[in-house]
Amino acid sequence: MTYEEFADTRLAPLLRYAVMLTGDPHQAQDLVQETMVRVQLNWRRVARADSPERYVRRMLTNQYVDWRRGSWMRRVLLRGEPDEAVPAPADHAQSAVDRDQIWSWLSRLPRRQRATLVLRYYEDLPDAEIADILGCAVGTVRSSISRALATLRAEYVEACS
């Protein structure tokens, strides 16, 4: 596979994944851009991986989780608050709590926890693969998901009461 072929098919899914991670289209673009530049520069190594797709997803996730690394966070921070101007399309089936609130609660989770939620509930990956992407044990994935869900549930209770 060449880099061009990879980008043809994988760039859009990666960008969607980054939107779910960051919750913001601009940050997502920066994140994907930074990762894909490195992918392109190191393409031979990426292509040798068993699954280049997973390898790149791991790079992107690390970049996102690791606040110390990479310059993209600094650039984003300079830009200030995440762009709130883009409204999500309305949804007719409203549950007890406005479901868009869950989206804003996600942004308060630690990044690693948010990443596990995205990988499981958006990408629908098995826990073993999530563990591989995050470079941790399967048990750690599970505990981090259950902690994240507990936090979200607590927000629900607070919003409903």
Binding site: A12, L15, R16, V19, M20, G23, D24, P25, A28, Q29, V86, A88, P89, D91, R99, D100, I102, W103, L106, L117, V118, Y121, Y122, L152
Partner: peptide, 13 residues
């Protein structure tokens, strides 16, 4: 959560 993720897909540039 699944619904929230799916609803925000259109944010993707």
């Amino acid at each position: 959560l699944r619904a929230a993720f799916a609803r925000h897909e259109p944010l993707t540039p």
